[in-house]
Write a protein that binds this DNA or RNA. Sequence first.
DNA 1: GATTGATTGTTTCAACGGTTAACAATATAG
DNA 2: CTATATTGTTAACCGTTGAAACAATCAATC
Lengths: 157, 157
Amino acid sequence: MARATATPSPGILPPDEHADLEDFVGYNLKRAYVIVDADFRRALGEDGLAPRVFSALSLIVHTPGITQSDLARRLGIERSGLVAIADELEARGFVMRKPVPGDRRVQALMPSAAGKAAYLEALETVRAHEASLLASLSSDEVETLVALLKKIRRIGE
Amino acid sequence: MARATATPSPGILPPDEHADLEDFVGYNLKRAYVIVDADFRRALGEDGLAPRVFSALSLIVHTPGITQSDLARRLGIERSGLVAIADELEARGFVMRKPVPGDRRVQALMPSAAGKAAYLEALETVRAHEASLLASLSSDEVETLVALLKKIRRIGE
DNA sequence: GATTGATTGTTTCAACGGTTAACAATATAG
DNA sequence: CTATATTGTTAACCGTTGAAACAATCAATC
């Protein structure tokens, strides 16, 4: 732990090195994210749903008829970025773009039966893999971790 | 919050919806990471150090003479990806590639005085911004968050 | 009812971060 | 000496994201 005292270079390094890279939330967040993200992709396989596609499908299944703009807002991305996601979901036959009577601009995203089934299956797979990956954490730890992450999320409006 | 009961579609949705998207560690990790990452870049400005460059510089300052391969391992990326980072650091005059007597393959990464100064300044900036961003979390909460994230990091070897 | 201003979905373009695969130079083990 | 491994590097590629523009459509205001 003590390394500043042995530094041969001029004393530019401050005595209070309390805020190392290892102590930054951002750095640890990134490193942890990379690990969990990789596990997710491993879980859903080579040509399975990517994380963002899974997230979109989840919201569509839970909120049938949601608009692309609304979905983008909910996911925190631009609506231009959501087009490719909706395209993929539609190409897989999991989601349909249905015109809305009142407003001819929007197209409601409706999950198909196959979409719902695929979602539930992926859900179970992801859940199992995440639980297995995080086996070294107690359920209490996971709970507080999620709570703290949600607290950070709440900062971004 | 009760939405399954009002779903007009056939009862494919299971009664135990405990594992929603919002409860996944991966999803919350990603969302929180995006927020903190954006704050980091905002803090260091348009043409400031990118997170990964800052991380690399930090390790070089704390471990003068570190090898590119070692640095890549420490950062959890491929050594091919580190070339661009080292290039940028060298172009900014923050780091020098110094040949090592014993082994003519490796080049030790040495921080310049400007590099050390730039690091310390960036360090302070990032620290202040992160503290301000996470003001809604107590120092205890930040501490446990970092501890939990490190626990996840430890999973990836 | 015509005009102004927003909103929606979309395309195109660029940037970034990262990986893989190859390569020459060099080092190490058998 | 010969095989094997490692280092730094380049080149090509992929996934994610944002920015900017656009036509179609809606809402509000005169």
